[in-house]
Design a protein around this nucleic acid. Structure first.
Length: 453
DNA sequence: TCTGGGGTCCTAGGACCC
DNA sequence: TCTGGGGTCCTAGGACCC
């Protein structure tokens, strides 16, 4: 059977760094306490906001290398996985999400000294890509490896955060080098080029260690007789494409280290949806309670949209039933509705409540999610044919007044009467950032803590 | 998985249009 | 309308990542 072959001479060859802040949240905590990030056993643990959940339900968001070594903790494990009673030397601290986000910004500002905007891409709160191809001569270094050491040192000196760096001919190789080798190397750096594909990529032991392959995809591949990255590379492109579509084609290319994207390309899409979801502290069985929640979450989405200057065009509601509850073989439902662009809290609430009432049939509920997509930059208010422009304007004005008061005096200073009802969660959750404690005491979401850094 | 939360991208099927 | 066909948009669900 015919197969697809790549010619590396024709592929892009850049110097891409993928830099990861080691045990990021834990390291930020260590840095701020003046503890050494490598030798201090520490975990960052998030407790559900209601404080009434069972013991051991705390979620470990991050652990320092020493905590991992001593207690065998993996990231995103549970309090119940820790030895009990908790060891005296183990430092357990609550998350302070705002600090981590500020530190992320500070570190990315350091990166920007080594490449321009176009060649810098923030991948997540603790990972960034840099294309430093053009920086090598500027910094008078022989190769990307040397520059990586300079950047690592720079970041450490300014922030006391240790980093790991994957370097590659393209973003994929850099990311794979980071995940599969750099973190284990003594200098926390790894350099993967096309020539190294057989001894690097093909030696990755498990399919699920490969970027883009999770549990389900690994199982599918197993079904085709593929059980390693090496086998993936030796399989047939057309067969994969035939059976797995685009994903199959992409996996085959990735197994050969092929990635034709440039960092500059990735500026376009950036955030085209935005949502919030929560697992509830107990089952909600009354429709009214759930509606209160949806109302609050609609307001949360509206507030976020207005703050960012966006309007959404598709709003969706997800309802997850309690453990074991099903309807038509499903454990919940998600429904969406398209609308004229809006960021009005009330309008969003009306849409989501309509979706809820149309589709909910009395099941006990444990999870609620709302999100909005097809975001556009807000340029004005678009009125639809059926509503009174005056009324629409009033809604928007009210939103902005509420936003302003909250900005000045905090979320709790003005809440919808609804949020005082049974089932409401907005007040408890108002200080959360990314679902976890923001950690700035009285400060509200979005405010800055200038003094800290 | 013993229900964290916020994202992105892809797919299959249906509606609708010309 | 008794098997047309291609294109686009929409929806719900799935999978993956950090």
């Amino acid at each position: 059977m015919e197969n697809l072959h790549f010619n590396y001479a024709l592929e892009p060859r850049r110097d891409i760094l993928c830099i990861d802040c080691r045990s990021f949240y834990a390291s930020v905590e260590c840095a701020l306490h003046g503890w050494d990030a490598l030798s201090t056993p520490l975990v960052v643990m998030s407790y559900p906001s209601d404080n009434q959940s069972e013991e051991g339900s705390g979620l470990i968001l991050a652990s320092s290398p020493e905590a991992k070594k001593r207690y065998g903790i993996t990231n995103v494990s549970r309090a119940r996985d820790l030895p009990f009673p908790y060891p005296k030397e183990l430092k357990i601290v609550p998350p302070r999400m705002k600090l981590y986000m500020e530190m992320n910004q500070k570190i990315n500002n350091i990166y920007k000294n080594y490449c321009d905007e176009k060649n810098h891409h923030v991948y997540s709160v603790d990972e960034s890509f840099l294309d430093v191809t053009d920086a090598l001569t500027l910094f008078k270094v022989k190769n990307a490896y040397e520059l990586a050491q300079i950047i690592k040192k720079d970041v450490y000196e300014q922030t006391k955060i240790y980093t790991a760096v994957g370097i590659g001919d393209n973003p994929l190789l850099a990311k794979l080098a980071l995940d599969n080798e750099a973190k284990k190397n003594h200098d926390h750096t790894a350099y993967w080029q096309y020539e190294n594909v057989p001894e690097k990529i093909w030696q990755i032991p498990k399919l699920t260690d490969f970027w883009g392959i999770g549990r389900k995809t690994a199982k599918k591949l197993n079904y085709f007789g593929i059980d390693s990255v090496y086998h993936l590379a030796q399989s047939n492109y057309f067969m994969l494409k035939d059976r797995l579509g685009l994903l199959g084609a992409q996996l085959y290319a990735h197994a050969w280290g092929i990635d034709r994207s440039f960092l500059g390309d990735s500026v376009l899409p950036k955030s085209n949806s935005l949502g919030n979801s929560q697992v509830l502290p107990r089952d909600y069985t009354e429709a009214l309670e759930i509606e209160v929640l949806i109302f609050e979450m609609a307001d949360q989405i509206g507030t976020r949209l207005r703050k960012k200057g966006y309007q959404g065009q598709v709003f969706s509601l997800f309802i997850g039933f309690s453990m074991g509850v099903m309807e038509n073989g499903r454990t919940g439902f998600s429904k969406q509705e398209r609308t004229t662009p809006t960021h009005s809290s009330l309008k969003i609430a009306q849409i989501l409540l309509r979706l809820f009432r149309k589709n909910y049939h009395g099941q006990p509920v444990r999870q609620v999610g709302v999100s909005c997509g097809d975001l556009i930059i807000s340029t004005g208010i678009q009125f639809d044919l059926f509503s009174d422009p005056k009324e629409e304007l009033k809604k928007i004005e009210l939103d902005y007044v509420v936003d302003k008061i909250r900005q000045k005096y905090g979320f709790k200073s003005i809440v919808h009467a609804n949020s005082l009802l049974k089932g409401a969660r907005a007040i408890e959750r108002s200080s959360l950032v990314g679902g976890h404690a923001g950690g700035m005491g009285g400060l509200e979401n979005g405010e800055k803590s200038e003094k800290i850094f």
